[in-house]
Design a protein around this nucleic acid. Sequence first.
DNA 1: CGCTAGGTTGAGGTACGTCAAGCTAAGTGG
DNA 2: CCACTTAGCTTGACGTACCTCAACCTAGCG
Lengths: 255, 255
Amino acid sequence: MSDIGTETSERDAQRDGFQAFLMSLEARDVLSHDERSALLALDWRRLSVAASREIVGHHRHTRQSCLLLSGLAARAMWLRNGERQISAVHVPGDFVDLHGLFLKVLDHSVIALTNCQIATVDHDALRALFEGYPHLGRVLTTLVAIDAAIQRNWIVGLGRQPAEARLARLVCELAVRMDIVGLLDDGRFPFPVTQETLSDILGLSLVHTNRKLMQLRDAGYLTWTRGEVTICDWEGLCELAEFDGIYLNRRQEPR
Amino acid sequence: MSDIGTETSERDAQRDGFQAFLMSLEARDVLSHDERSALLALDWRRLSVAASREIVGHHRHTRQSCLLLSGLAARAMWLRNGERQISAVHVPGDFVDLHGLFLKVLDHSVIALTNCQIATVDHDALRALFEGYPHLGRVLTTLVAIDAAIQRNWIVGLGRQPAEARLARLVCELAVRMDIVGLLDDGRFPFPVTQETLSDILGLSLVHTNRKLMQLRDAGYLTWTRGEVTICDWEGLCELAEFDGIYLNRRQEPR
DNA sequence: CGCTAGGTTGAGGTACGTCAAGCTAAGTGG
DNA sequence: CCACTTAGCTTGACGTACCTCAACCTAGCG
């Protein structure tokens, strides 16, 4: 393909939903024009997934990874008694199972929390990209490492924080992640999930989740209506959650 | 250096404590002779760290990563009130902060749970290794991804399992990880940590940890004396913990 | 106008936390 | 060889954060 052709396809790709992904990458390091082009020139396959459908199945051998273009998704694991724990929430721009490139078999499912637009790419192509563009490979691997850092943070919340602080922590984290991909608008971001889903994120019962959520609302920290969270007291929330966003690595650094 | 020289240094390195690391890698994929040599030929710097000292500090810019040759270590994070949550336990052969190569700044400390032998290596050297040996780089990155898979498993335990099952899960996981690096001997492995440390791993109080531990002992699942865990009923423990070791990726696969 | 999914509220139970004490074994100084 | 100390383990009593069950309420929607 000619230079002009590449340019066009890059612009197309951006217009069509890769913006969040690029913002996520460029929040962590500077990408060269070549790197961006190579990334977008991969053979992405687009799909729509309806809310609550499975995006990636667990315990299956994977040959491709999946990028979330729009919508919300989550990693879910089930216990024998039917209880569910969500171990990650994915926002647009997240490469939801890039770790599948290394693990081959996943121990969890990825489910769509809302209607989602996704783009998948073959592992073979990704491996070639990593070899051809080592720096780009490192930036992508950084995403995997940030993902793990987020999980560490959840472990602290689940292990040592009471329900209210845990909830506050989640809201703080999501706000920053949404901001990174341009979806935070004046302290407001979309989060159209049920309180049942929320309770599976926080490791709480539905009833308790509801009570603590109302408590945060009544105390003036936030509002949460019609699938949208509005943060009213950012400082207060951070204080309550003991939130320090440093682990989200929002710094352009040579990686 | 000549071939013979390399051979010798490789053998020396192995004799001196890299066995666990190599076993951990080779449990996940086949390494070529070249790859093994290149890995061991890095400029490793050896250190001893006394129990309960810090191995890696948090919030500092790191320029090197640290391999655990012998002993036990843990990732720890503290809350304002002084409570501690441990988000990972490291066994010999673990590359305790390989993710630092990508993150640059860590959000946690790594502390020695026992006296430890460690070996550090510069990030520059690692980056060069990743570029020169892409496949080896992928195997190393697989370790980061497995580390994250372990964390996901902890999230499920912390969020949805009662204390007893959570404890059982930890024991199952450690047994398999110890086995991978050759430290499991007939269902027995060394784990000389206090119950206070254990409670910080499980997100429980010391007293409750003690009671549940005794319960597991009394029920004949295991013994835990003089810093050694002996599993008496592997099937039963797995059943109780709902443990499925698949997430530890103990399979030689092309990565 | 009735149905349904999701949110809210109340009452009572339980797993876990806290406080406080006693126990045990290993180390230390006389 | 015997106090004495100390770190870690064990036990009891009691408090609380969270869970369960069971309603009821509300807003959308056919």
